[in-house]
Amino acid sequence: METGKSDSEHFSIVEVAELSKKFDKMTAVDKICFNVRQGELFGFLGPNGAGKTTTINMLTGLARPDSGTIRIGGLDCTENPKKAQHLMGIVPDESNLYPELSGFDNLCFCAALYGMPKKERLVRAGELLETFGLKEAGNRKFGGYSKGMKRKLTIAAGIIHYPKILFLDEPTTGIDVASARQIRQLIADLHRDGTTIFLTTHYIEEAERLCGRIAFIVKGRIVQTETVANLLQPVQEKHIMLISFSASAKDIVKELASEFRDIQIYPVSAGQIRVESEKPVRAGALARFIEDQGAEVTEARKLNPSLEDIFVRITGIEVNAMKNEKEKKGGNS
C-alpha cells in the first residue's frame, strides 16, 4: 500500500486493508485493499450487489467491518469512524435531505451538523446554491424539487463543510440525461478544484470520463485497481470492428476463423460479430468473404476501444446486463 506522506500528491487520504464484511452467511465484502490518493478522483466500479455501498458504509461509519483496517486522513477509524467524519462529505445513492425544509435551510442545517458558525454557513449555503444553479429554487421546499435538483442539492450538502474526501454513491443514477450531464460537469469541476473524490458507479463511460484510477469490484472482491490510462493501453493498441450481416453469426465465425487466422472473432448477437486484430482490419476482404458465404453485409464499422471492453474482459459481466439490472431499480441516465 502506498503511503508516501512526504509527497502531498501521493498522500493516501483513504487506506483500506483486508476489509471484510459478512451479512449472516453472505460475504458482502471480502478482504479488499485499496487506497485513494489526495486530489484524485477514484472510481469504484461493479455490478449491483458487488459490495460498493457496503464498502462506502464501512468507510463512512454506517456499517461495522468484521475485519480489516480503515484509515482516513491518517486516522485509524476502524473502530471509531466518528474520529474522521469531519473529514468526509457523503452523497448517498438516494437524496436524503429534509423535504419540509427549503434548499437554503437544508444546506445551512447540514453546515451546522459540522459545527460551522452561523455567519459562515449562511454565506457558504448562498455560494453553493449559486454554483449548483439552484439560487432561484433556494427558498422552495426540498420536497418539491425535481430528481435532478434534489441530487444537485445533495451533492452541495456533501461539500458544504469543505471535506477532505467526498464519497459519491451512484450520483447520476435515476435522473434525466441533462441533469446527469450537469452533475458530471460539477463532479469534474470539484475535482479540478482539488477535492478528492471516491465515486461509485455502474456507468462505465462515466467512470472513464471522470476517474483517474479505478477499482473493479465483483462479488465483494477487488479484481483490479489501475489508472484509466493503463487499463486502456492494451485495447487502444488493438483494431476493433463490428460487422453486421444477414445470417447466423455462429455459422460464419468458424469459417472466418479458419480463413483469417491473424484476427480474433467473437459473435456479438445473431447477425453481428466483433473482430479484433493487432493490425488494421481488412474490412473489404472480410465483407467479401461473408458475402461469399451467402450472407449480405449490412454494416461494418470501426469501434474505438473503451473501458467497457476492459470491464467485460476483467469481470466477465456484460455491461448492458448490469445497466438494465440497475435501471430496473430506477435509473435511466
Binding site: 461509519g61 466518528k82 435531505l97 451538523l113 459540522y114
Partner: peptide, 14 residues
C-alpha cells in the same frame, strides 16, 4: 424511513 436520519449518523457528533 426517508434516510435523512443517516445524515445525522454521519455527522461528527457523538
Amino acid at each position: 424511513k426517508n434516510r435523512s436520519f443517516e445524515r445525522l449518523l454521519l455527522a461528527p457528533i457523538s
